[in-house]
Design a protein around this nucleic acid. Structure first.
Lengths: 190, 190
DNA sequence: GTCTATAACAGGATAGAC
DNA sequence: GTCTATCCTGTTATAGAC
């Protein structure tokens, strides 16, 4: 779907993503990004003339792309709702490393008004996930309104479980979210 | 309970808290804190010789104190579980300004290992809230294990609704959390 | 494309007058 | 207790050799 990225480019963005996830945008200094990427600062500027902002932009775009292909797409494809959700849960477990990794959408949100440069991408990402969850719930027999409610709650539980896992220093809340996800989306209609 | 704070001190910590909530620890520059507090940088250093770290420490301690007195205490006092939860929900709505304010526990979490200076306070705060929620659910007739599960889910939903509200730029997810809280904690046992 | 070195700047922290 | 002015460190960003 996206432009063909070299394997090294993927690896580079993945390493930078790890730094942004751990430290946030402001907290991610060029020194930290340089160390995390295994490249000197000047090398990073050669690859990202737009500086830290561009690095975060590309990191976010790559994460959204991966998420769309690996989580959203399976949710939309045919098959049993239960099976599709199980597949998505496995990918989510991978994406967040069992709850050890924070969510970029959380770490890049700047609450100081809606002026953050990432706000549009973040908002549309949340809406896409809610939409995909909602679709599955509807196909399982839930009314549109109820399906939407379940989808929103599932997204809240996902984000909240990541926050709580970080705060408690344990992956248990995230694992609990994953195992409860089918029931949260489908309920008795499973 | 805590040491007697002058009214100005409370107001000062409240303003600083707003800056930390919006920008996170790293993002909160001394310039931003100074502007938010309405004090010059040097004045802040007179009050907080320990610098930004001390400001964040005291802000977090004050928030935890307020939370304990206004949210946790009502949950523990006697009365109908439903009534106590409704009271806590009103205080939460106040505390987070209807979902417009982020949670300090989220904004001050540094995922880079558990070495963050706020980690112990954050962890014990989460555990205290889970404990208070769990107690109410148990008193309403739920078994200890089920009560704990409901409490953890409620905390996840709270944190997740705040993240989602911020991401979507709307207080709706947080309001949905608040109105669903009694049912989430008590369920059919209400 | 990646490195060493450095310039330009912002951020955290202090001194000292009032 | 608060201000103006300043220091010093760390950060962003760039130049130029290889």
């Amino acid at each position: 779907m996206a432009r063909p990225l070299s394997i090294d480019e993927d690896e580079l963005l993945s390493r930078l993503a790890s730094v942004f996830r751990d430290l946030g945008y402001e907290g991610a200094s060029l020194a930290a990004l340089s160390e995390g990427a295994g490249l000197q600062k000047a090398s990073l500027y050669h690859r990202f003339p737009g500086g830290k902002q561009q690095m975060a932009d590309e990191v976010l775009a790559a994460a959204i792309g991966w998420f769309g292909e690996n989580v959203l797409a399976p949710l939309k494809q045919g098959g049993e709702p239960k099976t599709r959700i199980a597949a998505a849960a496995r990918r989510l477990d991978d994406f967040y490393s069992g709850g050890r990794k924070a969510c970029l959408l959380n770490m890049l949100s700047s609450p100081r008004s809606a002026d953050g440069p990432f706000s549009p991408a973040i908002r549309s990402s949340f809406e896409a996930l809610i939409d995909a969850f909602s679709r599955v719930a509807r196909e399982a027999g839930h009314a549109p309104k109820a399906a939407r409610r379940r989808a929103e709650r599932a997204v809240m539980l996902m984000q909240g479980s990541l926050v709580l896992s970080r705060g408690l220093g344990s992956g248990e809340p995230f694992r609990a979210f994953l195992s409860a996800l089918p029931d949260d989306l489908l309920g008795e209609a499973a």
